[in-house]
Write a protein that binds this DNA or RNA. Structure first.
Lengths: 114, 114
DNA sequence: CCGCGATAGGTAGGATTCCGACATATAAGA
DNA sequence: TCTTATATGTCGGAATCCTACCTATCGCGG
């Protein structure tokens, strides 16, 4: 997949991954890779700023896991995040329908008459 | 449609609009607006740089219409542009399938067993 | 025990892309 | 004549993603 094709859709994907339950950043990355068959393979320089964006927007909350060992930040969907995900799914449907139609070969005059 | 959702897909749309025959920039803008029911309504600051990109990439050729009156630049798909359009349609299909699947609600264990 | 890979998180700078505002000019119509 | 539509373009800003780099812990093979 072209690198920049993702633009504008990544946030929705992250929300979708977090939908079933909380997860930390690295796990989100893996799950997204799994869901896309390896096609969407985020760099950490993409993932972490994106998660911060979502957190600042109030769509997810992040908390450091206490205790020893590797520090992890667990992210969880907020109610606003859930609504945003629902909205994003609608936006995605519209987007696909609109761009898909515009990208399809133009109907010829004969097609239009048929 | 969110403004930045288009990113990475505009070039393909422009090629698709130019597929049936040559057109000048302003007409491309109108046709794209028509095809998308007004959803994709490009600013000139988006359209003209994009057309230049495509021209520099050798996917379209532009020629100024001679004669008096408003100056227009007619754009036409090159053979490379036609191949690129074909490729882009494939890329779009993959993109939609991949992101659509990842965005869908995760299958529950019960779903997977069914 | 020590190095190494996997895990886990992060920052900084660069590239791309689209938008908004502005500029220019011609043609048509009120 | 004034306004609107047509037609093309530039410039700076904003957003987003990538590359490269950095730090640190944990488990495992040697």
């Amino acid at each position: 997949m072209r690198a920049e094709a993702l633009k504008g859709h990544l946030d929705a994907l992250l929300l979708a991954v977090l939908e079933p339950g909380p997860a930390h950043g690295f796990a989100v990355m893996g799950e997204l890779r799994r869901r896309t068959g390896g096609t969407v393979d985020l760099e950490s320089g993409t993932l972490y700023p994106a998660l911060r964006r979502l957190e600042e927007a109030g769509l997810i909350t992040g908390t450091w896991t206490t205790g020893p060992g590797r520090r992890r930040r667990e992210y969880q969907l907020t109610e606003r995040g859930r609504r945003a995900l629902s909205d994003e799914r609608g936006v995605w449907q519209d987007f696909v329908a609109t761009i898909g139609a515009a990208l399809a070969p133009a109907a010829t005059v004969r097609d239009a008459e048929a």
